[in-house]
Simulated assay, not measured.
Amino acid sequence: MGRVTERRRVIRIRDGAVSTRPDTLVAEEPLEIRLGGKPLAITMRTPGDDFALAAGFLVSEGVLASAAELANIVYCAGATGEGGSNSYNVVDVRLADGVPVPDISLERNVYTTSSCGLCGKASLDAVRTTARWPLDTSPDTPVRIEPATLSTLPDRLRAAQRVFERTGGLHAAALFTTDGELLDIREDVGRHNAVDKIVGRALQQGQLPLSSCVLMVSGRASFELVQKAVMAGIPVLAAVSAPSSLAVDLAVETGLTLVGFLRGTSMNVYAGEHRLALSAAASTD
């Protein structure tokens, strides 16, 4: 349970010299998420924070919005590996009494990989209509962040990635205040899983919506990551790499501030520029 890394023998070649050595790899195992005993999704993830991952996944799906709506999450006793021991790769989520259980059909029963998230569900309307906390799109919104503060977040994210330093094979998601204070960070082989773990922990601690936070992610900003930020009430999403076209469309539709290619003092703002404390009008060149 909770194996984050594993050791493997590798052949190392450096400048023509060949040697053997142990290498530390990030662990990747499947996690089946059940809702009320019924299979809902399977995701490839790094073991650890599995209950938070499941809770965050259900926030992004519009099923959960507060800790009061969650009865409990348990590992299924039937999840057995070799030798009859529990593999801890199946979790079952039980909703609180009175919370409606969504219809789980083949359309909603999804397999998610560590790279793409919910590849089969890319609907702007679905996110817009199910979001519990519509983002404030007014230019007078109190959430403001300095570009200089944004520029510090990638280094702060990287410095807090403990497992990445050992493996070089993990994505990360982190929550910051608008002053750049690190609130939480999670690592996972899948960037969407890292975000789910962040959001799930916030739900468990009664902190949703995260309406005064900035979400920083390694890698690119996909539609799924924008979706997860919107569903958690996060107004600002920043990524070190590029967004997809659909991610930008969703950010514009929902009023999310979306920043990509955040590297040093350089960044591209794709939507929601009213939350950035810009000193001069943007050029149209």
Rank of each mutant, 00 (worst) to 15 (best):
M1S: 14
R7S: 12
V10L: 05
R12L: 08
R12M: 05
R14D: 15
D15T: 14
T24Q: 12
L31K: 04
L31D: 08
I33L: 11
K38H: 02
K38W: 09
L40H: 04
A41P: 06
I42M: 11
T46K: 04
P47K: 03
G48S: 05
L53D: 11
A54N: 06
V59H: 07
S60C: 08
V63T: 09
L64R: 02
A65C: 10
A65W: 13
A67D: 13
A68D: 14
A71W: 05
N72H: 13
N72T: 15
N72P: 10
C76A: 14
G78N: 07
S87R: 03
N89G: 04
N89F: 04
D92I: 14
V101T: 13
P102C: 08
R108S: 14
S114C: 06
S115M: 11
G117I: 08
L118C: 11
G120D: 10
G120F: 09
A122T: 03
L124Y: 03
A126P: 12
V127L: 05
A131D: 04
D136H: 12
S138A: 10
P142T: 15
P142Q: 15
V143F: 01
I145T: 03
T152L: 13
P154F: 08
P154Y: 14
R156M: 03
R158M: 08
A160R: 06
R162L: 13
R166K: 08
G169C: 11
H171M: 10
A172W: 00
T177P: 04
I185S: 07
E187K: 02
V189T: 12
G190E: 13
H192C: 07
H192A: 06
H192N: 11
D196N: 12
K197D: 00
R201L: 10
Q204Y: 06
P209W: 08
S211M: 08
S212A: 12
C213E: 11
C213P: 05
C213F: 01
L215V: 00
M216E: 08
M216K: 03
S218F: 05
S218P: 13
S218R: 03
S222Q: 00
F223D: 00
A229I: 00
V230C: 09
I234L: 02
P235I: 02
V236H: 03
V236P: 00
V240L: 10
P243K: 06
S244R: 03
S244K: 03
S245T: 07
S245K: 02
A247H: 06
A251Q: 07
A251P: 00
V252I: 15
V252K: 13
L258S: 00
V259A: 04
T265Q: 10
M267F: 13
N268A: 15
V269E: 02
R275L: 01
L278I: 13
S279R: 08
A281V: 14
